[in-house]
Design a protein around this nucleic acid. Structure first.
Ligand SMILES: [Mn+2]
Ligand SMILES: [Mn+2]
Ligand SMILES: [Mn+2]
Ligand SMILES: [Mn+2]
Lengths: 225, 225
DNA sequence: AAATAAAATTAGGTTTGTCTAATTTTATTT
DNA sequence: AAATAAAATTAGACAAACCTAATTTTATTT
């Protein structure tokens, strides 16, 4: 009843909303609507409307019918810090505890909410100040700055070119386990051998090995450089 | 509405109650009453009565007016696992992230609730299977077994004898910071030089240095061997 | 421009975990 | 054994975060 009022102290739900709104705001030019937030959090639009009111009152977001929901500078700061913690914990789980990249997201989803003034910074230092998380997403620094996120997908590549897997867009277990099976990870070299014009399937060579065919959807979820 | 029913899935509050009841059960021969639980969790006896009903329904505790509250085998198992996680995280925070022993308890209080099937075991392995936490409390193994907790206090010692600090009973910042200032930690050798009969103050020598006087209360919160 | 569909909002509930105040039960004094 | 004090319990409320169903607003078709 006092601690809660301190700036930077949010409930678990508030934090999950801030993070969801932040993530949606990464898709540039797309309006952030109550429905979109509801889908992202797998809950009901009516609940979202309640929370929009609460977060607006707390000056963490602004809601304009025309332009949709946006984070205020304060809300952005909080959201980025949550993302920072999430991604740092993912590095920890993978590198120090030996988890695979398909197992870490859900655990980090809980760890990200533990808020101690120096915890993220200490963890960051302990991990050697990593730039990217195990899925290739940039890790915000303590000051909120971060490396640019990758945006070119495998499906965007020209036939006959090589690329390096830099990040994954979909972080579901289903996708990550499929990648594990195909022996594709961050850093893997992929050659785009052919695009099947019928359905945009991609014929690729993984690390120079024999050809494999993957779907368009697959290609759109691999970020390359 | 399904996951919650799985055995071993408890809410944050349920877990805190189980841990509080476990802690109270360590003081042998003391009846665990609603009031005692309320004090331990700094909440209201009326709330405790509600939760006693809930945990009884879930068969995690038993409540007998005569003998008080006790953990069922299932409740004990859950409680010990929470304690295991708490103490392992404390070791992590101290040894890997460089926190001092007066800063770790509150953070571990949140980390302990993160429940993934293999997380505690991986952390345990990563930390080298520690036997005791930074306050000298034994860390339960995956099977629930643990080394015996220390029980002899500095105040119990005979004048003129030496002892090794094995654990602290009070883990408040106030006490731990005082110990830090006195240069007392786990492993420190203390010689009990004299007991002042007037108020049971203790004249001690820390690691063979010049004498210091501490209160009876102080002596009762240092566990030795 | 009407008709229809979709999205947003409101109204009214539910569950969890808390609380205060009142009451009942149990324990301790006198 | 009464009187008194303490502990336990019940009754009733409340905030947070969700829900469903109904309604209103906005967008899309025809
Ligand atoms: Mn989360
Ligand atoms: Mn990630
Ligand atoms: Mn806790
Ligand atoms: Mn401890």
């Amino acid at each position: 009843m006092f601690v809660k009022e301190l700036s930077g102290m949010h409930t678990l739900s508030e934090e999950n909303y801030l993070k969801a709104i932040y993530r949606l705001s990464q898709d540039e030019g797309v309006k952030i609507t109550p429905t979109a937030i509801a889908e992202s959090l797998r809950n009901n639009p009516a609940s979202v409307v309640d929370m929009i009111r609460k977060l607006t009152d707390k000056q963490l977001i602004a809601y304009d019918k025309k332009s949709g929901v946006s984070l205020t500078p304060q809300g952005l700061k909080s959201a980025v810090l949550i993302v920072r913690r999430h991604r740092l914990w993912e590095v920890f789980l993978l590198e120090k505890l030996g988890y695979h990249w398909d197992e870490i997201h859900d655990i980090a989803e809980e760890l990200e909410h533990i808020n101690d003034t120096t915890l993220a910074d200490r963890l960051d230092k302990f991990l050697g100040f990593p730039e990217y998380d195990p899925h290739g997403d940039p890790i915000p620094k303590a000051n909120g700055k971060m490396a640019k996120a990758y945006s070119v997908t495998l499906a965007d590549m020209k036939t006959g070119t090589n690329c390096r897997v830099a990040a994954v867009r979909d972080t579901s277990s289903a996708f990550l386990q499929y990648l594990l099976k195909l022996d594709i990870g961050i850093g893997t070299t992929i050659t785009l051998v052919e695009k099947i014009s019928f359905d945009n399937s991609l014929v690729i060579s993984i690390n120079g090995a024999a050809n494999t065919t993957v779907s368009q959807k697959f290609g759109e979820n691999i970020l390359v450089e």
